[in-house]
Each structure stands twice: as C-alpha cells, then as structure tokens.
C-alpha cells in the first residue's frame, strides 16, 4: 500500500516552506506523518506536492520566554514528554501526552501536526485551548497571530488560508502551585479519546477557587471551553458542589453522534470526566498550597 505519486520537497527553513507553499498547487505539508501518512496510504488524501517539514530545524523548539512557554510546530510529542521546562511549567501537558497514541507515534508525532489535523478529541488541541494559546501563522506575505479558539474553525478545519502554515504557539504558564488534571476515556489505552476534559485552577489564600479553566474535547466537532462554568467557579471551594455544577454544565454542551458513540453517551462522559478532573485539580492545588 503506498500513496499516489507526488513530488517531494525537503525545505530546510521556514522561509523556504512559505515560498513552496505559496507557489505549488495542491500541496500539503508533512509534519510527523502520524495522521497524514495513513490518509495518504489509504489515498483519502492525494497531493501533487508533499512539502516535508522534518528538515526545518527552526520550527522545533521548547522555550521559556519569561512567564510564557513557546513551542515550535515541529516539536516532537516525545520531546514535550521528556522536557524539564514543560514538567515544571505545565505538568498537565505530560498527563495529556501519556494518552496520546503510543511511544512509537509520539517519537514522530508533532505538536503542530496535531493542532492542524485538529481531530475533535486530540489531547494537544484541548491543551492549547485550555491554556489560551496564541498561535503564530506564517505565509509568503508575512506572519499573523491568532488564538487557539479562533484557529479551531470547524470539524478538522483549522483557520489556515491559502499558503499559510502554523509555525508555533505560546501561552502563559499558570502560577506555581496551580491545580491541574487531564481526564479522558478511550476504548483502549492509546486509542483516540471519545471525550477528554482538561482542568487548570488556582486557589486564593482562603482555599477558594480564584481562577479556573475547563476545556472539553471529543464532545463537539471542535474542543470548547466552559467559560460560564469557569466564572461560576470563582470564589467556590473545590468540593462536591462546585464539581457537580461544572459537571452539569459540561453535560449540556451540544454533542456529536456517530455510528459508535451516541451524543447522550458523549455528554455523560463530559459530565463524569469534568467532575473527576476538577476534583483532582482541586485536591492537587490544596496539597501544593499546604
């Protein structure tokens, strides 16, 4: 089984990528290949030009920039998983990554590839939305910035125009001592999640929630934040009542339905997983503040 014929390009700089992408018709970028290669093997995707990003070193980085964490689009999931900067700044990323495929796919799969493929249940898209990631988009005409919320335009559809590509993303790390938890359910470990819920929170000196973020993926066609539930949590102690209220909000978002998983079941999972994630994040924050 092999892809339909294409012309292969191996640029070594982002400028070269922008130039090729702007010039070549029916071209596609190849990042880690863990989604695009199967699609090409099946010939669901047939391209005239394949532009391989694997030689573009400047797109692979993990940088701490003051309070922000910057990740290059071609950073391997494995490199995130083993990064001391990530472990220190945002340990939820490690918990989420442990559920992204398997070692063999994380060795190859990239951060940006996952954001652009934008599978509705992708852990890294959830993580980017949860952190209000700011994305850097390049093209022959220059660069622009957008938020993860804007970028996730629709079902597996990133907001990328003709000739545009994702260069990287950055987000503000939450303060030391924040609580976090990533909960997902999949039929077998390493499979695509059916639903996942990511939670970040901070507590004030009285032990009440000061700030909370909740991102759900796999429920609707794109990952979503529970903005109302997040603001409702402010000032509450992270106990049963608070978890229950957020869980109910999670169960009320519109859910997709397919041959395997009904909408009702997705909403059920959203409720249970959000409760658990919030409960664990709260317990963590309490422990860290003691």
């Amino acid at each position: 089984m092999k892809p339909a014929p294409f012309t292969y390009h191996d640029p070594t700089s982002a400028a070269e990528v922008a130039e090729l992408l702007g010039r070549l018709d029916n071209s596609r970028l190849l990042a880690g290949g863990q989604s695009l290669m199967p699609l090409m093997n099946f010939r669901y995707v047939v391209v005239d030009h394949l532009i391989d990003l694997n030689g573009v070193g400047e797109l692979a980085y993990i940088r701490r920039e003051g309070p922000r964490l910057a990740l290059g689009a071609m950073t391997r999931q494995r490199d995130l998983e083993f990064s001391p900067e990530i472990a220190a700044a945002s340990p939820i990323i490690l918990e989420a990554l442990g559920q992204v495929g398997h070692r063999q796919t994380r060795n190859r799969g990239t951060f940006g590839g996952s954001l652009c493929h934008l599978d509705p249940s992708a852990e890294l898209a959830n993580i980017a939305l949860l952190h209000d990631a700011e994305l850097e988009i390049l093209s022959r005409d220059g660069s622009r910035r957008t938020s993860m919320g804007e970028f996730a335009k629709g079902f597996m559809t990133p907001d990328l125009g003709e000739g545009e590509f994702l260069a990287g993303a950055s987000f503000a790390a939450w303060p030391q001592g924040h609580g976090w938890a990533f909960e997902e359910f999949s039929r077998r470990r390493g499979d695509f999640a059916i639903v996942a819920s990511g939670v970040l929170l901070t507590l004030d000196s009285a032990g009440a929630i000061d700030r909370a973020a909740i991102a759900l993926s796999g429920v609707g066609p794109i990952p979503v934040r529970l903005a109302e539930a997040e603001s409702a949590l402010k000032g509450q102690t992270p106990g049963h009542e608070a978890c229950r209220a957020a869980a109910i909000a999670a169960s009320r978002i519109e859910a997709m339905e397919d041959a395997q998983v009904g909408a009702k079941y997705r909403r059920h999972l959203a409720r249970i997983l959000t409760y658990r994630a919030l409960e664990r994040a709260g317990a963590r924050a309490r422990r860290l503040s003691e």
């Binding site: 292969y8 290949g33 290669m37 694997n54 060795n107």
Partner: peptide, 13 residues
C-alpha cells in the same frame, strides 16, 4: 535509536 512505525515514514525521509 527511536522506535517508530516504518509504514508511516517515507524511505526518502
């Protein structure tokens, strides 16, 4: 030195 699925990598890579 890193494990990967060789059906998802092009030989040219």
């Amino acid at each position: 030195g890193q494990s990967l699925r060789s059906c998802l990598m092009l030989a040219v890579q």
